[in-house]
Design a protein around this nucleic acid. Structure first.
Lengths: 273, 273
DNA sequence: TGAAATTACGCGGCCCGTAAGAATT
DNA sequence: AATTCTTACGGGCCGCGTAATTTCA
């Protein structure tokens, strides 16, 4: 298996275009075309097919793209940042932490050049930490995350969860959109709270996804952490639920930046008091 | 970033040896040595260092290895099996399902040549499914797994969870080893059952890990599913807990092998009745 | 007519192999 | 003396670029 051909195929699949891939790779169009041909003929599989002026992926092409995607999007990027400059700290965190808490800390600081911040779901951030794609994961979870032995966990703060929606919650809301990290909260409420027990729910990856969905389906509601309400207050109605949620910072115990990480965690803690 | 050099580095790191890497890659020892040198000098980083006759990884070397490892161990293998023969079905499942249920089904069947079966933790199997590294994930979980929209879930069967140990559970057991997929069960028992409430616990990746640990620390106990007790009965004492656990089959809705997958799920269901 | 992909062909870089040397046990 | 990694050097492959051709909107 020729990784060079996979890399070229990755770019072709990403852009659904041989020309765009050639641009991105800084090589000529025929060079890209020829490598794809070689990859295809090596296995006797068609990965792309003509589609009018351009091309599109075949079914196996789509599957191959899915398989190799995370390497070129995550692993290669992390490897480069590791090798180029070991002083960079790679943070993957959930929507609320990366979009509101982290920027607030660095409003009046200047060393954010050393940080690579990626906003994703809590679940993904954990996977990225595990794979070595980031140095620090900032996540929320209704129960303390269970992890492998080489990962350290520090609780940043506890928070109340509240439900938010565009419409008044008691009357007009017809469905719930629940992010994975708050699914336990939903299950408690479903059992004990008449307000939620009759509402159908949809599970999505992250709070960010849930909020985007509310902007489309304005009769739905989701759960966010009370502390972050100030960022949404003017757009949303809210309703206290009385269920706790924890925010956690996780990092590998053998990370070279442990001192920096601990310092950063302290800064986050004090800024969210 | 030269992926060819990364591939060579992966093998060097895996074997902690340039000679072994050369063997595995079917190229000469100096060729490997030279590519590592080029990778190091491209970024001005030392990845390996001399250690007596052989070599060992430096700190950044270890980190780089972690980052790229899953690509060469999972993605490349999956990509090859996809391209070489699209009729292969890749199954990742937890210890109990892959070691006891699946082999039992194919005892008197002959088409297991089309299957690639990988035994891992429930958590990892899910991640592999998500990344396209497998077509079917067979996992256990105390609550129904929450997933992205393009993944289908079928429940295979419900099962009672029991605690097992080498020593009589009530008297001699001094600690619990709990696999991630049964952590919810543990929390229920910790609250409600005096037998478990005073025992310290350690969380591990999988049931397999927990059972291995019991073989080392014979005063510990863990949870397994009652249906699988027959495979361990002569070695372990057990104790019913009265908590339910579900076994699930998960696959991507857009998989090309959906018919095969559904057929296989039916076979598993009927074989475990 | 222009944008995108394919075909044809020659050049140059780089990757590998062989052989000899150095270091460690 | 045996094993492992490094250095030196030459040859061959393959991946790229240029230019011309084909296809489609």
């Amino acid at each position: 298996m020729n990784t060079h051909q996979l890399e070229i195929f990755y770019h072709v699949a990403k852009f659904q275009s041989i020309s765009r891939a050639a641009e991105a790779l800084y090589i000529s169009q025929p060079a890209v075309s020829s490598q794809i041909k070689k990859l295809e003929s090596a296995y006797g599989v068609h990965l792309i097919e003509k589609n009018g002026q351009g091309i599109q992926l075949t079914a196996p092409g789509i599957q191959l793209y899915e398989i190799i995607r995370s390497f070129f999007e995550n692993a290669i990027v992390s490897a480069e940042s590791l090798l180029k400059n070991s002083s960079v700290l790679r943070i993957s965190g959930n929507f609320l932490m990366t979009n509101f808490v982290i920027p607030q800390i660095f409003d009046h600081e200047t060393n954010q050049a050393n940080l690579i911040i990626k906003s994703t779901s809590s679940f993904n951030a954990l996977t990225e930490l595990k794979n070595g794609y980031c140095d620090l994961a900032l996540i929320s979870a209704s129960s303390q995350p269970v992890l492998s032995a080489d990962i350290s966990v520090k609780k940043i703060f506890d928070d109340e969860i509240i439900s938010v929606s565009k419409k008044p919650l008691e009357r007009e809301v017809t469905s719930l959109i629940v992010s994975k990290s708050k699914i336990d909260v939903y299950k408690i409420l479903e059992k004990n709270n008449p307000l939620f027990s009759h509402l159908p729910y949809t599970a999505v990856e992250s709070t960010q996804d849930a909020l985007s969905n509310i902007n489309i389906n304005k009769n739905s509601a989701t759960f966010i952490s009370a502390r972050f309400l100030k960022y949404f207050e003017k757009d949303y109605n809210y309703h206290y639920t009385g269920v706790k949620n924890g925010f956690y910072a996780l990092y590998k115990s053998n990370n070279f930046h442990t001192d920096e990480i601990l310092k950063l965690i302290e800064m986050i803690k004090s800024s969210t008091k």
